[in-house]
Nucleic acid binder design. Structure first.
Length: 315
DNA sequence: GTCCCGACAG
DNA sequence: CTGTCAGGAC
């Protein structure tokens, strides 16, 4: 399904042409493709107001200065709903209160705590990043974009989140809720495939320098509310991607294998295959052939989830 | 089926 | 740029 820009603005700066700004139903004049300062100021007021109206300030990781704690929450929230992270973050922080605790933790224990959260790779990256911070940054989280991006599992969004939430820096933080708000407010509803390139200048120009943390809380809360009340504007992002079906997928088998090895560390390759196929058959699916099983296990081992020594799989 | 406070390898 | 990754709520 190729997404194509529906509006006539095929050029890189979409908000030149459309000249239909949405947002509070008000159409404002553009000035050479850039929203006027009046428009931006009206937007800023709207964000603060919506942030107040739809605040989710009861989330346990909010209003926290500990950059490590913020970091853990941001990683957990990557492509994962708030409602799920609410249950995992407190447990994780209790088990590993400091970055040193995580850096010195057993991989098996971290993965065990991660089960049910999804995207297990994140847990490994989190541990590796913690080790890097202990070694390179004296057991603290770095507070610059470049240093954050140098850590595994931290991309532009997570780095921006840490800078804004933990360090109160006016960073560029673009994720699904932020996209939802900016697309909803600055791009006419028929505009498709809005690229982050078009959002980032707006994000930079509007971010509060007095209170970046509060600013992005407000954006997130407004974005979450917009998604509840109307069709998700993020679908009009060029970066919006649908998930493949999980049932019967490669991912589901990976998850099963990892859970099995965690529960029976040292289990043989053959036994894991038997358990997997029992499960597959129980769910009405065909057995997994040896080649595929081999590949799945090797991939997991290569990514560092466990070691494969001869026939034994050991976390 | 839909979505989720993305990162990374190829 | 595209495909992959996890899991449960709705």
């Amino acid at each position: 399904m190729t997404q194509k820009r529906v509006s006539s603005a095929a050029s890189s700066n979409a908000y030149v042409q459309g000249s239909t700004i949405v947002g509070d139903g008000a159409c404002t004049e553009f000035n050479h493709g850039v929203p006027t300062e009046e428009r931006l100021e009206a937007f800023r007021r709207a964000v603060w107001e919506a942030g107040l109206a739809y605040a989710r300030d009861n989330l346990p990781w909010r209003g926290i200065d500990d950059a490590y704690a913020v970091y853990v929450s941001e990683v957990m929230l990557q492509q994962t709903q708030v409602s799920r992270v609410e249950k995992f973050w407190p447990r994780f922080m209790e088990a590993f209160p400091t970055i040193d605790d995580l850096a010195h933790a057993e991989t098996a224990q971290v993965l065990e705590l991660w089960q049910g959260l999804g995207y297990n790779r994140r847990a490994l990256a989190l541990m590796r990043a913690a080790c890097a911070c202990v070694e390179r940054f004296d057991s603290t989280m770095p507070d610059t974009l470049d240093d954050l991006l140098s850590l595994p599992g931290i991309g532009p969004a997570t780095a921006g989140g840490i800078l804004a939430f933990a360090f109160q820096k006016p960073a560029v933080y673009v994720e699904t809720n932020v996209r939802a708000v900016f697309i909803h407010e600055f791009f006419a509803h028929h505009t498709e495939a809005v690229h982050d390139r078009e959002l980032i200048p707006l994000v930079e120009q509007t971010c509060s320098h007095d209170n970046p943390r509060g600013w992005y809380y407000a954006l997130l809360d407004w974005g979450a509310h917009i998604k509840q009340t109307e069709k998700n504007p993020t679908r009009r992002s060029a970066h919006y991607a649908r998930q493949n079906t999980f049932e019967g997928s490669h991912r589901q088998k990976r998850a099963f294998i990892l859970r099995t090895v965690l529960a029976h560390s040292g289990i043989s390759f053959t036994e894991v295959g038997a358990l997997l196929n029992t499960e597959e058959n129980r769910m009405g699916r065909p057995s997994v052939d040896q080649t595929t099983l081999n590949r799945l296990v090797d991939e997991l081992a290569a990514e560092g989830f466990f070691q494969r020594v001869d026939d034994a799989l050991q976390v």
